[in-house]
């Protein structure tokens, strides 16, 4: 079985999303599921940036913050419908990513890491300091999306958690489909070429700066939409969504499962989203366990969980 193949990935994803609810004993599981999909979406964006293009960002929670606060602020101040507000947030994120990305992406490795980190921290600082607009560290309310009511009028009656499970699952499948398509497109090939060697890619005529920027802007849009979805389903948002730890979580999920494959990265989102839920009984140990998992996976499975497992399965089969 080839995990990189597009149809397999999408089939597995759709099947799991559709079948899992059969085993859900309570609405709490729908809630965790939709959180997984929201994180999965951000992580899919990072697959494009980290896995395809080989660039790192420790500031992508900044874009999630922009997406989230767009849903909270645009309906109030610009009179936009919450769904349009999410689109507005995505456009804003893309614009900012475009402006910030050009100078930032000239940097490499640790320099790129610290520059993107600085950007993310600036966004979260603005969100928590401009209290008159954003409610500061206490956060602010987000209006209802209203799609559930529309569905009810056409006879589909879903509970709140069920709706968000289905809706964010759908957006995740869509996002995964786009990312997988990108992989096999000329842009995807250019990204992978510059990942392999920037100089080699430039030599064969790839506009390295342009394609890095494409990956950066795309992943920013993914993060932004993920932030919007989170805000809309929680109906409440705090600056934590843009915080440094959230950026780290996003990158960890991506690399944990395997940055090179969409499915792997989503698996990383599954693990790191459910881990704290499972560990609530051992809340004292949550940080200890999270740190340990991060270190162990990176030391012993450098390609990430899924590719490592896939390789060992394949190795045994041969």
């Amino acid at each position: 079985m080839r995990f990189s193949s597009k149809a397999t990935t999408l089939l597995i994803l759709i099947a799991v999303i559709a079948i899992a609810p059969v085993f859900f004993p309570s609405s709490y599981y729908f809630r965790v599921g939709s959180l997984i999909f929201v994180n999965g979406l951000a992580v899919t964006g990072l697959v494009v940036l980290i896995g395809y293009a080989g660039q790192i960002s420790l500031g992508h929670a900044g874009f999630a913050g922009i997406g989230a606060y767009a849903c909270a602020l645009a309906p109030v101040h610009l009179g936009l419908h919450p769904a349009l507000a999410a689109v507005f947030g995505a456009a804003l994120s893309a614009t900012i990513a475009f402006l910030v990305g050009r100078p930032i992406l000239r940097l490499k490795g640790y320099y790129l890491a610290v520059a993107s980190l600085g950007f993310g921290i600036l966004v979260s600082m603005v969100l928590s300091n401009e209290a008159r607009l954003t409610g500061g560290p206490d956060g602010m309310a987000v209006p209802e999306l209203g799609l559930r009511g529309v569905l009810r009028t056409v006879g589909v009656d879903l509970s709140n958690t069920e709706f968000w499970y289905a809706f964010s699952g759908l957006v995740l499948v869509l996002g995964a489909w786009l990312a997988l398509n990108l992989y096999h497109s000329p842009t995807g090939r250019a990204l992978r070429a510059l990942h392999g060697s920037e100089i080699a890619a430039r030599t064969v005529g790839v506009d390295v700066a342009h394609y890095k920027l494409v990956a950066f802007v795309l992943s920013a849009v993914y993060a932004s939409v993920s932030g919007s979805l989170l805000a809309l389903q929680n109906k409440f948002i705090t600056p934590d969504v843009a915080g440094f730890m959230h950026s780290i979580e996003m990158v960890t999920m991506t690399v944990l499962g395997g940055a090179g494959s969409v499915l792997g990265a989503i698996l990383g989102a599954v693990i790191l989203t459910t881990l704290p839920q499972v560990l609530t009984i051992f809340q004292e140990y949550e940080q200890l366990m999270l740190g340990l998992v991060m270190m162990l996976v990176m030391i012993f499975m450098r390609q990430g969980l899924l590719p490592s497992i896939a390789r060992s399965v394949r190795g045994r089969g041969e």
Partner: peptide, 24 residues
């Protein structure tokens, strides 16, 4: 044990270590 790993992995390892130490 992680010698030669890519920059991203090393960043995550040391951030993991920092979270671990904090938790401990």
């Amino acid at each position: 044990p992680a010698r030669g790993a890519p920059v991203v992995s090393l960043i995550i390892i040391t951030i993991g270590a920092s979270i671990f130490i904090r938790g401990a």
